[in-house]
Design a protein around this nucleic acid. Structure first.
Lengths: 338, 338
DNA sequence: ACATAGATTGTGAAGGGTCACATTCTCAAT
DNA sequence: ATTGAGAATGTGACCCTTCACAATCTATGT
């Protein structure tokens, strides 16, 4: 509270106090080798007594580099890779600025946000863009000349990106059910304008059809528990019968488990259930949930590593890096009882 | 890909093209009223053809204001207020920079992070600090002269802050169980170095003792599902018996429900369970969970409103703003079957 | 003793804006 | 015709660094 509110010390103040030039102070701060031990200590002392902190704005202006990375995220409910991104950004010496663009945002609004940040002197951005609302090209165009990495665009998208192979994940899940002997398999998919959800759904349909099985027992959910609940209720109300259920993600699986139970169906005796994600709680569902694990920490890390390398190493090849989900078998699946 | 990589246009370039002074361009950009309609349009045209974007670093340097708010968070697993913070920060014209400080971080590490950001020309910070590792005074000291708001420090802390009244919340939960007729009540608390967890725990103990009831049926958890599971197992293994269970948060409640079931105890027939938070999924637990709702959106919003007001309105009074949790009754509680 | 390379230090000019102030212009009132 | 207020525009200094280069110092080899 006793703020003396004296203006913050500058390079020149420090230089003056230490009896050297401002350039020398700058050298000390930036750990330039060619400074004699003696002067370095004088300068360090002056910095200490003046409680000097370099002014980043000036530094950014002079160098053109801000050491800030912008994360554009379309829905904070799906921010699983965030902790890892934060961790690795910091590890590489970058701060993370976060913006959320509502997936239902108008083109203008999105544009405005993106415009805004290009002026912020940002070194690069990660766009976590599982929604199909904007095309990847469009997004790339919007952020102009800045280095960027897309997290989770379409498999095969021709741009610097890191993705999970959702087809592979869906295949693991469905094959598991088929191997157990299930033939009547229903699905509560995620929202189909969500890339991941769509790919899983398409894989489901394709695989079922390839085996001559009914692929029509499918309803669209919203990736949240209530959506999973309602999806199952819808399926059952249409008098569909099935011995296994593929659910778009774990949160919906939670709602689905609840709905099945509410309708007197036992899991896994009557219906096997497979989720997607392997959230921490999945091992504590009732029953514990068989699911497809996605390593979001790896995703976050790869994004940052890749982006930093694009920023700092000029000739980094632009490619798509693919991560593969894994099946985690628990109690919610077993062979059909018939 | 066809990057012409021409240097970005500056104020002077625009001025030159529009045939006016740079100051006039500045006025147009900052929507200063005294610019004739005619010149404004000329300038706007020039801005457009040059694809000019103001350089924020220069602006920050000149004005001393960055319109950035830093969020210090101690564990991203507890980032419930984040979406609201992001939303309101943007609404007020601020970007949000996020840093996580591991609660187990050494004093030095924390200091370093905080030092670092004071140089980043940040206008203010929100410190979401439910951990007791650093004292509030210490934190306030670390971020020096910058305006700040603490989210979730101790009730009564003498500093600008927004908190939930955890005692009130715990009272609601416990009173609900008492009203139902429970007398043998156990607790799986959150980690006790977490302020919220500690306050809830202390309230539990105090209330039980005030009524001459056994307050020793308590074990410490970690706020995650596995911790809830293990907590219940521990209580049962010690041959404690209870008809009701207070759990430190919903995630642990999920593990607790699982453990009770695994041990053959039915909820709510044999044991009633109350959680804390009211996460979206709580209504889909098996059974649906009675819990104490905390309005994290309100918390996030209040923090931002308050901080922005401190930044922009010099004589904003420094106070603590208190939010009150509410009880949400669902299926996991009922009177004991004695 | 002296040239020379290498280490150390200093100088001037950006970098791209804002601010305070000075100047010019416009137009109504005297 | 003259004054003056207010609108519109321009000028110079400053914000705090870094960069490229120039200048000085030091120690080494001959």
């Amino acid at each position: 509270m006793a703020e003396s509110q004296t203006k913050r010390a500058t390079l020149h103040d420090v230089a003056h106090l230490a009896g050297v030039s401002y350039q020398t102070v700058s050298r000390v701060i930036n750990k330039h080798p060619n400074v004699s031990r003696n002067t370095r200590e004088k300068v360090l002392g002056a910095i200490d007594t003046l409680d000097y902190r370099p002014n980043q704005a000036a530094k950014i202006l002079a160098t053109g580099r801000s050491h800030m990375i912008q994360l554009i995220i379309f829905d904070l409910s799906y921010s699983d890779p965030l902790p890892a991104m934060l961790y690795w950004a910091r590890k590489f010496g970058y701060s993370l600025v976060i913006s959320e663009i509502n997936p239902r945002a108008s083109r203008n609004e999105a544009q405005e946000i993106l415009e805004d940040l290009t002026s912020r002197m940002i070194d690069g951005l990660v766009i976590y863009t599982p929604f199909l609302h904007f095309s990847h090209e469009e997004l790339a165009e919007m952020c102009h000349h800045l280095p960027f990495v897309m997290a989770g665009p379409e498999l095969g998208a021709k741009m610097p990106s890191v993705v999970f192979d959702q087809r592979h994940g869906a295949r693991l899940a469905l094959q598991h059910l088929l191997d157990l002997g299930h033939r009547c398999i229903a699905e509560v998919s995620g929202p189909l304008q969500h890339i991941d959800a769509r790919m899983r759904h398409e894989t489901f349909v394709a695989m079922m059809q390839a085996r001559g099985l009914d692929s029509s027992l499918s309803t669209e959910g919203d990736f949240e528990a209530p959506g999973g609940y309602e999806g199952v209720i819808r399926l059952l109300d249409e008098h569909k019968t099935f011995t296994a259920l593929l659910v778009g993600n774990d949160r919906m699986a939670m709602g689905a488990l609840h709905a099945l139970r509410a309708r007197g169906l036992r899991v896994p005796e009557d219906v096997s259930v497979v989720g997607f994600d392997d959230m921490l709680e999945a091992a504590y569902f009732i029953p514990t949930l068989t699911t497809v694990r996605q390593d979001f920490d790896a995703l976050g890390r790869q994004c940052m590593e890749y982006l930093v390398s694009i920023i700092e190493t000029p000739d980094t090849p632009l490619q798509q890096r693919v991560l593969y989900p894994e099946l985690v078998v628990r109690d919610s699946t077993r062979p059909p009882t018939s």
